[in-house]
Nucleic acid binder design. Structure first.
Lengths: 192, 192, 192, 192
DNA sequence: GATGAATGAGACTTCATTCAT
DNA sequence: GATGAATGAAGTCTCATTCAT
């Protein structure tokens, strides 16, 4: 392993440790020395890679947001029909939220508490542009209700966060068949 | 003001102070001495009313959950049609989430982080029974899709949390007219 | 119950509560409000009977020292022979230490830690004068070794404290027969 | 000074500071920040060496018990006669109790209050085995009374604690000559 | 670059004591 | 006389961060 890889390795170990601790115990019970121990480094080492705890959290947020949107647009091409394209994206996001539990709950924590600096949060919003474009096209084609993209998001993507949380707490389990039905609900909510 | 009122007063001042701080700065940045100062009491006084910080948070959670569900079923009677009844409840909840900002964001924080003890969280779930009953009736009458109540909740009530958060961050504003349209989306998502 | 009795009653309830708590948890873990609760009074009430915590402890010390010496000289008369008199006193003290466990361990705590103000401790020393007189007579009669009364005490009375502690911790039990033998050891230690 | 020595040094400075404070003011008046100041470290540093205050006290207890028993059996060999052996051990213990005042009073405090966790106290009992063995031999040889070792201890070793306390309070002073006489008393108490 | 011992600041909590009732 | 709510002071312990090695 060369030098660059080694550095990437440590950064990533720190990200993983932070993610795990915040997931399990919350931002308030994720002290730096536990993060260091879980990542297999000395506490002081963290400060070689990040300015301080807030910086570590902010950067982790961006990292995960990026991985999230990369995943969201896997296999998506612009040529598809609006519904086909939307279904692909929706399923990608559903897959992410239901399989990458730690990442998804971390994003939920970030979005629902003041733990991320505003400037980083704003940056995190830019990642879904292709979906916004698709919705705009759908509205032009008369297929999708003329609502703000915030509303479209709220009624199609955001509900998955709730179902993920319920699954995580073992009060609700998602099967393949219901997946189809749920997508139908999302589509019904925003289609004309 | 008599003694009982004075006690209720102090409890409520502590709740309010906690709510404000958690809302503004997060659970992780709401220390007991700030809570005390904001409530106008000495730090030690908090411990006359609550066992410890966790207890204070748990009890506040229950308090707010209760106020939330009381509000949710205001003006709701069992005799109404499914859609009428649902519309009343949905609007009540929307009103709550869009006007009682601090309470609503507090609940979001509680539901998306491990800050509430599981036993209290469970208790908080019991509060929406009449809505579940209404949905069941709607399903029997063939009006509502045969989906788990978790899914129905995810696609009708939960989206409001997102819109509230966006409004709180001043990136999206809700008007009276869009309120109607948004309800339509919620209804479309779950109606047959 | 008249007024005087009521007052005596509360004082004594406070003494008993303090004794119990100090016995069970130590001076360092016997807070005033626990003492009050155990005595069935309000915390503030303690300060009607005692100046402060130290005063309460000091006065309790004197109270118990007095009860101890009263017990020590029960049935003792000056006319007896030295050995007879000593045996009576020794047995009285042994009875006290082995039956009034809480009182005896409290005295041990007081004598082995800096928890009693020196002026009260000094007062507590005066209580065994008749025994010192008896020993002096024994020395004049050539029956008892010409040693300091501190030494005589150390080798006859003080050992009972150790046996009491061992009995309290259930590592050693005292029978009637061994009582006789132990007295013999005490006597052998100081007699010529 | 190398690293290992530095660590041992700090541990030992903390032990010494604790010992001094507990000796002078009692367990109940030996706060962590005073211990830290006296040891020349920051309060937080204590927690690098000990889990908490109780752990510090427990470990100090074991440390001192060990030093005590090491001292007790200095120059003692198994080949000696029972009385010779006993006299050596008894004198060693007397030396310890009369010269290492702080250590000896600390042990007295530990043994007479509930300040040490039971599990550590039990461990502290194991240290006098050679003396118990010696007594057993003495009993087999018909030299020592057939009494429980607890009784033998109570009448030979334990009295020294009282004399130490009296000396510490300046009410009694021990000379070389009386040392001999006192040993005689101890021996008379347990010998046949 | 990496460490881990060290720490100042501050977290939560307890306590002896008071004071209005 | 009795109370119990209230509190300032102080207790134990944790934490993000630094610095000599």
């Amino acid at each position: 392993m060369n030098k660059k890889e080694k550095i990437a390795d440590k950064r990533s170990a720190l990200f993983h440790a932070t993610l795990t601790l915040v997931h399990n115990r919350g931002f308030h019970d994720a002290p730096m020395n536990k993060i260091a121990k879980l990542a297999g480094v000395a506490p002081a080492t963290i400060y070689l890679y990040f300015q301080n705890k807030q910086d570590l959290i902010n950067k982790l947020y961006i990292e995960i947001k990026t991985s999230f949107s990369t995943c969201a647009f896997k296999d998506y091409k612009e040529g598809l029909s609006v519904k086909e394209g939307f279904e692909i994206i929706w399923n990608n996001i559903a897959d992410y939220k239901l399989s990458k539990i730690m990442e998804a709950t971390f994003l939920s924590q970030c979005d629902n508490t003041p733990m991320i600096d505003e400037e980083y949060r704003k940056e995190g919003l830019k990642h879904l542009q292709p979906l916004l474009d698709l919705w705009e096209r759908g509205q032009e084609e008369g297929l999708i209700k003329p609502l703000s993209p915030f509303v479209l998001y709220a009624f199609t993507i955001y509900p998955m966060s709730f179902l993920m949380a319920m699954q995580e707490r073992n009060v609700y389990g998602l099967t393949k068949k219901t997946r189809k039905e749920i997508f139908q609900s999302a589509w019904d909510a925003i289609s004309i």
